[in-house]
Design a binder for these strands. Structure first.
Lengths: 205, 205
DNA sequence: ACGTTAAGCTACGATATAGTAGCTATGAAT
DNA sequence: ATTCATAGCTACTATATCGTAGCTTAACGT
């Protein structure tokens, strides 16, 4: 109660409060939220902690986002990582490249550690579930893209079911990353692709 | 503060506190914890809520479990659902039956809705991760069992890799249940099994 | 009958969180 | 220079949680 007399609003003595622009504040907040999301999952993102990390006052956060879920939503939006679709000339080649890229992201991407918490939230929140399956479809749209190209080339039957193939490739990769927690090396990825395609489509003998 | 004078420990007026035995108390607590687990995930299991639902006093809960994680552990332990291994005579038949059973549990089992929260916790807690991959292996041990039988019959090469096959079947099923959130019908399950086994082993033409 | 065990109760303290109120001070446009 | 939007501050309410203390009382074995 010694220096209280200057009242609220007076700048703190020590750490000079850096004053930032509206945009800088939003960016800093989202960056902190993103960081928290990857470190601690959805439930780890609290206004208090975002405020602490970003240096943005909690009241300021509330000026930009009306509620916790609004901030969360923006934070999650940031990292819908769309896999880039390779173009190797052959369907098998494209698929292998795509799968290797996915495996890469699963292992190194900080996104992969936040994913389960989003899935979990989706179990109980229809809005989250909806959002999740939409961004999920976007992320794996590469499978559809390379299949279309292969169909255009005549390499693939026009009625080829991409959905099954996506499940046959992404499934085992996700499975190893989050459920069995086994290694996800390139050899495994290649075996998955071969098994998913079947031995008939190239005649590698 | 009208009836307070009877002091602590006096039974409440209205809802007669049912006095239960030690075993009944533990059972009721675990049942409530299990229920909460499936409804709200790991983070939804709090001592306060378990107490509320089970009618067991919170202090009594602490007499049985030293901490929240201890109760959680016991609650999770309850539902490691081990798939029963079918015996149809052929590897393909066994595998199909096993996969259909798994799909069934994924869709109807309340366990399936709690799983993501456990996976999520495992991302950040090594102990949980260890526990998870152990119970996970137990749950899918049926794959190893039917493969061994097939090997004993000479139906399968002795060096057949069960781990890859498990990933090729459980992966797509899990994928549809938790990630793409698509239908998990029998036809899909059968297609997954066929693709995983390859067309070579039965010659269905 | 009696004593031990353990369930139940109220009441804490500590912490983390969602939000809000009201004020001050600063940066940029005017 | 003045004004205006807005970042930042303290402080608060309300709630949910973990975990503990101390007491009373019912059930059960002897």
């Amino acid at each position: 109660m010694s220096t209280k007399s200057r009242g609220a609003g007076a700048p703190a003595k020590g750490p000079e409060p850096v004053r930032r622009s509206k945009e800088a504040v939003k960016a800093a907040s989202l960056a902190a939220a993103y960081e928290l999301l990857t470190e601690a999952g959805l439930s780890g993102v609290s206004f208090d902690e975002v405020s602490r990390r970003s240096g943005v006052a909690k009241t300021t956060l509330y000026r930009h986002w009306p509620s916790r879920s609004a901030l969360l939503f923006d934070a999650v939006m940031q990292f819908a990582p769309r896999l880039q679709t390779p173009n190797t000339g052959s369907f098998r080649g494209d698929l292998t490249a795509l799968a290797l890229g996915l495996a890469q992201r699963l292992q190194t991407g900080r996104w992969a550690s936040a994913m389960p918490s989003i899935v979990d939230a989706g179990e109980r929140d229809a809005e989250v579930a909806e959002f999740q399956s939409r961004t999920h479809a976007g992320m794996l749209s590469g499978f559809g893209a390379i299949a279309s190209r292969a169909q255009a080339r005549g390499e693939l039957a026009p009625d080829f079911d991409v959905s099954d193939l996506t499940a046959a490739i992404a499934g085992p990769l996700f499975y190893r990353r989050w459920f069995s927690r086994q290694e996800l090396d390139d050899a495994f990825v290649r075996r998955v692709v071969e098994r998913a395609l079947g031995p008939d489509s190239s005649g590698h003998g």
